[in-house]
């Protein structure tokens, strides 16, 4: 490959290991038991981009994300964040897990959840000060949830829960944001609020990677896509990689051709 082919959109050169990329995954295989959920996947996420990870159910989207974060240990392969192993780059990573992954009857209030985004920074014995609470409140304001700071989390609607999770990630003040299905089961107002925040992050030069399931909004929300069906199907800008051919390849018969036409061709 020539250097020109490896040049990213903003003109900087990437080496083979993606040292300049926000996230570079190399030959990653993740397996629960004997069947790999993700097999030998390479992925490169340029800095300042917004990438949607898409693919059919059970294609390994969330698994790939968790392995990249080091939440699950891959069987093979590695991930680097800004050229460093994930363990050394934790302070630059924020994560929004799936809403359903926690017990919302846990005895905690909205503000306390957001403060969890600061625990890393606080360390084991650091004291929680007024400035931390102010910062957490600012994050709640960015998702329009400041009025709910003192609410018990069990009283929130699905969309509000998702906003709180996003606020917690904002409190982490990271450069790379991982989100697992942030728009799943939320109301329209929340979806709009979340996408505004994410696009604001990109405008500030942050990088966003989200597992996404709604194909119709991919071209509006994201500038890059990563199609996965256990193995990598396609990767690139929306124009390059979000085509009827790649979608057909990733989803197979599970997606009607009409739907493909509407989402990919119609844009």
């Amino acid at each position: 490959m020539t250097a020109i082919e490896l040049a990213t959109s903003n003109g900087t050169l990437m080496d083979d290991h993606g040292a300049d990329a926000a996230l570079a995954i190399r030959s990653m295989t993740v397996s629960y038991g004997q069947k790999p959920a993700v097999f030998s996947v390479d992925m490169t996420v340029p800095r300042g981009s917004m990438t949607a990870i898409i693919g059919p159910n059970g294609a390994g989207k969330s698994t790939l994300l968790k392995a990249a974060l080091g939440v699950i240990k891959p069987l093979a392969g590695s991930a680097t964040v800004f050229g460093q192993p994930v363990e050394n780059a934790r302070a630059r990573i924020a994560y929004v897990p799936q809403r359903a992954s926690v017990d919302w009857d846990f005895p905690t209030r909205v503000l306390d959840v957001v403060l969890m985004g600061l625990y890393r920074e606080l360390g084991l014995l650091g004291r929680l000060r007024g400035t931390h609470k102010t910062r957490a409140m600012e994050c709640l304001e960015r998702v329009d949830m400041q009025d709910f700071a003192k609410r018990q989390i069990g009283q929130l609607s699905g969309g509000q829960q998702q906003r709180v999770f996003l606020a917690r990630a904002l409190a982490q003040n990271a450069d790379l944001y991982f989100l697992d299905e942030p728009f799943s089961g939320v109301d329209a107002a929340t979806e709009k609020a979340i996408i505004n925040v994410l696009q604001g992050l990109r405008a500030d030069g942050k990088t966003v990677v989200a597992v996404h399931h709604d194909l119709s909004t991919v071209p509006d929300y994201f500038d890059r896509v990563f199609l996965i069906n256990t193995t990598r199907v396609a990767e690139g800008t929306v124009e390059e990689a979000f085509t009827p051919q790649t979608l057909q390849e990733a989803y197979g018969g599970r997606l009607a051709m009409g739907q493909l036409g509407q989402t990919a061709l119609g844009t």
Binding site: K66, L69, G70, V71, E87, R90, I93, Y95, P97, S101, V102, D103, F106, T108, V113, M116, G117, Y119, R120, L122, L124, L125, R168, Q172, F178
Partner: peptide, 20 residues
Amino acid sequence: AFRRPLSAVAFDPEFAASSG
């Protein structure tokens, strides 16, 4: 001493792991 990490792990183990 461990109350913060322990409650973070109890509430959301995946997030706790992602933050190191």
